[in-house]
């Protein structure tokens, strides 16, 4: 783990991170490969399978200040049965809410295959006092969250205090047991692919079960190239240490076409083992309607209209 250590001499965690190299990223090559993967044509039965898989890996998300218990309950009902008129549509993977609403979601999803995810740890900036962040994480888990999405401390990471960023994630991992920990890198704020790769490695080594692109709260969000960059980091991590980490893409994924582009990127980079809700997620709020529209088009042969599908 010489790269991490090289920048932060105070690091005392050489054992935990030993042996994981952080190689530089060829930005031009990365973007070209991502673009090539996004040009792949997915048709007929493959498209149908991709659409169903997209639903199965979706984290249906609502992270608004105006979220009410009723709104969350409605979202949970959609999560179980995304299309009330077509029970062949599978359930989504998870519902993602603020900690305050975890208990509502947990109750609404009791007995369903859908799990409850909560953002916590001072989302979306991640700059609340550490105690408060850890307490928030523990509280979300106690309220019934199966998964917790926290944010990387970009303030520490971008100023080179990698050890601090690492320690915070490790502490969060302790606080969130037995729930799964997803670490949001907020790639739009990291500035370069090298930094995204470094942050990915740091989060994985620190104990993340999933690494996630974005909060969805800033303009820049998941792009094919960042997804590929993070997928390659996960692949290298698995090759070098055997540790399996999942990938969650969030922010800006609004169309079914974008979704299957990401499926291609993940499938080609990490293999089909990653093409399931255990290791891959798409966080989105408006994506589901477009997937349902495309699914209906595939079944009926007719292009659909938005008004036929629910508003939220």
């Amino acid at each position: 783990m010489s790269d991490l250590l090289a920048v932060d001499a105070s690091a005392g965690t050489a054992d935990a991170v030993a042996g994981v190299r952080i190689t530089p990223v060829d930005a031009v090559g990365l973007e070209q490969r991502a673009a090539a993967l996004c040009a792949r044509s997915i048709k007929t039965t493959s498209k149908g399978a991709a659409l169903d898989l997209t639903v199965r890996v979706m984290d249906l998300t609502t992270l608004e200040g105006a979220d009410t218990p009723e709104r969350v309950k409605a979202l949970c009902a959609r999560a179980r049965h995304p299309d009330a008129g077509d029970r062949s549509v599978p359930s989504v993977a998870a519902v993602c809410v603020y900690p305050e609403l975890v208990s509502v979601a947990a109750e609404a999803l009791a007995g369903a295959s859908v799990v409850v995810a909560s953002v916590a740890g001072g989302f979306p900036a991640g700059l609340a006092p550490l105690d408060a962040r850890l307490a928030e994480i523990a509280g979300a888990v106690a309220a019934g969250a199966d998964e917790v999405d926290i944010v990387l401390n970009r303030s520490a990471f971008l100023s080179g205090r990698y050890q601090k960023a690492y320690d915070e994630i490790a502490a969060a991992k302790q606080s969130c047991r037995p729930a799964h920990l997803k670490v949001i890198l907020e790639t739009g704020e990291l500035g370069a692919y090298d930094q995204i790769r470094r942050a990915s490695m740091l989060a994985m080594v620190a104990g993340a079960d999933f690494i996630k692109t974005s909060t969805g709260k800033i303009g820049a969000s998941a792009t094919p190239a960042t997804a590929l960059c993070m997928a390659e980091a996960i692949r290298d991590m698995a090759e070098q240490t055997g540790r399996v980490v999942g990938l969650k893409l969030a922010g800006g994924v609004r169309t079914a076409k974008q979704a299957w582009h990401y499926l291609v990127i993940v499938g080609e980079t990490l293999g089909s083992d990653w093409l399931g809700p255990e290791r891959f997620r798409l966080g989105a709020s408006s994506l589901l309607n477009d997937v349902l529209m495309q699914r209906a088009k595939l079944g009926s042969g007719r292009y659909q209209r938005r008004e036929y599908f629910s508003v939220d």
Binding site: G301, R302, Y303, Q304, R305, R306, Y308
Partner: peptide, 8 residues
Amino acid sequence: PPLAGHAA
């Protein structure tokens, strides 16, 4: 046909 059948 696709124009006539388009629900939108």
